[in-house]
């Protein structure tokens, strides 16, 4: 079902945590709300769930205006970071809870719970209590409880962040598969850009309560809408060089190069992803500097260089050998450079 936030704002006293957020989630879409802590992403999710009141604006699920509807009547299911399993109920009772409070017939409950349990491979654990389960199993119970009543949307609040790294990767894949199978609209909150990029159909990036960009993972990576998104997505982050643009040529203390832009006479910031740069002998390439540090990661080496006043990191071969302090040049395809207006941070072109 479609979920629409229409100019939705939230303030706690005088603190505005969400400013006129508008976005539309299409039926069956997997949308990730990505942001650092304090960006307002969790608040947005809780407003959709009805756990947080709306200061202004409205929220629609399907064609219903649910802005003032009680959480229990919104027909959405939520998976919490802590899983929020009821410790005094067995796995079966936990999964069955959404059905029992709705007073469904016993036989139907029994069948639905067993079906869902099988789907998430919990059928042998139904009589256990949450405290007797591992982290991954608890996570599955939380998912099963969300699935069991076929809600019109899933809301997930950092559901994987309490798992260890290995299990997280595994559950990520399962989650994506399951959402695809069920085809239920999902809104997923996380601060982890890898989760966002791998899971989402579209990613919405929030910062200080303002939507920065809403687009597919590929577009977000390839065409960041502003400096914040550029710096937030990608690891290691995009290199930034401050300089000026004159007749389409970028000029800074470390060097100058042509760009696709025809703008002129303004202060800009040029961005270059580490994998787009390559190291060259001194004097070659568009930028000149010296090696500050080099770190072998495994399949590649990260080389950090001082170029004028800026630091530029470049992804090099794993057998790169250079010593600290050695002068070096950095080259790149000129169309790989991202240009941003220095004052507003917005993307140019």
């Amino acid at each position: 079902m479609t979920i629409i936030l229409d100019q939705t704002s939230k303030s706690f006293g005088s603190v505005e945590v969400l400013r006129a957020l508008s976005l539309e989630v299409k039926p069956g879409e997997f949308l990730v709300l990505l942001g650092a802590s304090g960006s307002g992403k969790t608040t947005a999710l809780r407003m959709i769930a009805g756990l947080e009141s709306v200061t202004s604006g409205r929220i629609l699920i399907g064609s219903r205006d649910v802005t003032h509807v009680l959480p229990k009547n919104r027909d959405v299911a939520m998976v919490f970071q802590s899983y929020a399993l009821y410790p005094h109920k067995t796995v079966f009772e936990n999964i069955a809870y959404p059905l029992t409070v709705r007073k469904r017939p016993k036989a139907e409950i029994e069948k639905s719970v067993r079906d869902v349990a099988q789907q998430v491979q919990l059928d042998h654990l139904l009589e256990r209590y949450p405290r007797q389960l591992s982290g991954g199993q608890r996570q599955r119970v939380a998912l099963a409880r969300a699935i069991v009543r076929r809600p019109s949307a899933f809301l997930m609040d950092e559901p994987l962040s309490n798992l260890d790294a290995k299990l997280r990767g595994h559950m990520r894949a399962e989650l994506k598969h399951m959402q695809h199978e069920l085809g239920i609209t999902t809104i997923y909150v996380t601060h982890d850009q890898i989760e966002a990029m791998t899971l989402a159909h579209r990613v919405a990036i929030l910062e200080r309560g303002v939507l920065q960009q809403l687009d597919t993972p590929a577009n977000i990576y390839n065409r960041p809408a502003n400096l914040f998104v550029a710096g937030f997505i990608g690891s290691p982050p995009m290199n930034v060089l401050e300089g000026s643009l004159a007749d389409g040529r970028f000029d800074c203390s470390a060097g100058s190069f042509g760009t696709a832009s025809r703008a002129s006479g303004r202060a800009v910031v040029a961005g270059l992803r580490p994998e787009d740069g390559r190291l060259a002998p001194p004097g070659q390439g568009q930028l000149a500097g010296e090696i500050y540090a080099s770190e072998l990661i495994g399949d590649h080496t990260l080389v950090t260089c001082r170029c004028g006043g800026a630091t530029v990191t470049v992804k090099a071969d794993k057998d790169f050998a250079g010593s600290i302090g050695q002068p070096i040049g950095i080259g790149f395809e000129e169309r790989a450079v991202h240009l941003f207006d220095k004052a507003s941070g917005e993307r140019l072109q």
């Binding site: 769930a49 009805g50 756990l51 009680l70 959480p71 229990k72 919104r74 959405v76 299911a77 939520m78 919490f80 929020a84 009821y86 809870y97 959404p98 409070v101 709705r102 409880r145 009543r149 809301l155």
Partner: peptide, 8 residues
């Protein structure tokens, strides 16, 4: 909160 979303 979970219970309230579950319909309680």
């Amino acid at each position: 909160e979970s219970a309230s979303l579950d319909g309680a």
